[in-house]
Nucleic acid binder design. Structure first.
Lengths: 204, 204
DNA sequence: CGGTATATCCTGTTTTTAAGGGATTGCAGC
DNA sequence: GCTGCAATCCCTTAAAAACAGGATATACCG
């Protein structure tokens, strides 16, 4: 029985590319595609594919949220993340949300086919590059606590320590301490490079 | 005579997608693809296509730089920018570097064909969404001077006013003024949100 | 020529951060 | 019960940035 594959990606060219890569493969049945999260969920109400190839960047909802929602409603559907970004946090979040694998958009046909055949068996698949990224960043992870993330975002919003303190109902000196720890964890000297690095590493 | 089209994009799936979209079109001749700037330039030494579809994000060089270089060496080749990002500055920079058009990766086959046929005549083509973005941001452009950009980047690097002043051989008070103007132009209150907004708007 | 933009520099004051030092509570895992 | 971590709070000093309100020179452009 052929493996039913469905694609969610807002880039028409990528959808076409995948379709073209899979169309001559025996054992693969192309069940359709969606350009956003909403039409993906609508499709799933009617029928469930075996595998969904899902982009992380969608217009109406992040692929991470969609992944979570799909896995809750249809646990038997396997999801493979799909993205140009090879950022640690994205890959990790996708897997945390229930994805069974992760493939970068510069993957070859062989990689894609291997990913599908591995995942359909219930196993986990990482593309070479994705797993490289994971092991690389595992060596040097910046782990922030809940509170630190919260403070970081408010700093980026432009709030001062006093304003953040008011908003979180704590003392300004507490915010100061969190700030101190953020600078230390990122290994930077001031707010400017903190925000820059945090943005590049997708914390904001 | 068929229009010779060449693709530069590091994402195999996108290359496949475009190939699939163009393969049945009469009047289009697929001359090949490159996954990075270096192999694109190597290809051009041997033969020149009529049109290059060029991604903005390449592994070894930005599409903007590659565009400039290609136009200098081979002015007769028309370039169409290709990107998922619909950021004002990217589109603008691509056009400034000599591109003749801009198409988003979620373009349909019709849009792509129209872009090629318009550009081959020496005219300029914008996809609907891209031009929407341009006109939108034209209403609210943040125009920085050379010096302001320079200062902005050094602020993001984490340098203090004094350090920036030393580096640029000017007085610290001058840097202070530039900083004041940057805050005003971005409409923000402090460095944190300045860096955040500047990053999101691709100034950094 | 006059207007505009850019870049430079100044003197202040006030607010905010950075960087050093500590300290206490509560909770989870061993 | 101890350990480690997260989160909270406090103090001090010095540096940096923000805010206010200027001035000057240069260059480009209609």
């Amino acid at each position: 029985m052929a493996t039913k594959v469905f694609i969610v990606d807002d880039h028409y060219m990528v959808v076409e590319g995948i379709r073209s890569l899979l169309q001559n493969e025996k054992g693969i049945e192309w069940t359709g595609h969606a350009m956003n999260a909403a039409s993906c969920l609508a499709f799933l109400q009617r029928q469930q594919p075996d595998i969904i190839l899902m982009d992380i960047n969608l217009p109406d909802k992040s692929g991470i949220d969609l992944c979570k929602e799909v896995k809750e409603k249809y646990p038997s559907v396997f999801i493979i993340g799909l993205s140009t970004f090879n950022q640690q946090s994205f890959i990790q979040k996708m897997m945390d949300s229930g994805a069974s694998g992760y493939v970068l958009k510069n993957a070859t046909q062989e990689e894609l086919m291997e990913a599908i055949s591995v995942v359909i068996k219930g196993k986990i698949y990482f593309s070479d590059e994705a797993s490289q990224v994971l092991t690389k960043t595992d060596a040097n992870p910046i782990l922030l606590t809940r509170r630190e993330k919260e403070v970081l975002e408010l700093i980026a919003e432009g709030l001062t320590n006093n304003e953040i303190a008011q908003k979180l109902f704590v003392s300004p000196t507490t915010i100061d301490t969190h700030r101190k720890n953020l600078l230390a964890k990122f290994g930077v000297r001031n707010t400017a490079s903190l925000i820059r690095d945090a943005t590049k590493l997708q914390f904001i």
